[in-house]
Nucleic acid binder design. Sequence first.
DNA 1: CTTCTGACTGAAA
DNA 2: GTTTCAGCCAGAA
Length: 126
Amino acid sequence: MMADRISAPAPTASPGSADFERDVHAVARLVPEGRVTSYGAIARYLGAARAARMVGWAMNRALSADAVGGSIPAHRVLNRQGLLTGRMHFPTPTAMAERLRAEGVPVEQDCVVDFAERFWDPSTEL
DNA sequence: CTTCTGACTGAAA
DNA sequence: GTTTCAGCCAGAA
């Protein structure tokens, strides 16, 4: 049951491929509210553990392209340290932190508190 | 064309 | 424990 196909991304997508970017957006959307994930986690889930940077680039396009009208919670994607490295790419440098706080994610000095507990690994959770 | 930088990560010193 | 280096792929100068 529950075979509602959660948009399970195909691990065959390689970096630079349109499918890869689509998968990144798909996983980002699957991140539960109040949870956060890392670029490497998504990249690894897609079979490109070394393409974490490409994930970040894909997210950048997500904001720019605003695919589906900002339905992509890019603010839930952080680096391995739980640091809001992408905050500078948001409309405002505080938008990312404010957004996380609005979801119940405490942020201090551009760093998510209890990042390990908030961490959501697609390879494990999904 | 070459070179550098970048929403990263892991390993080495 | 921190700091530095190298790998990765793509885009911009």
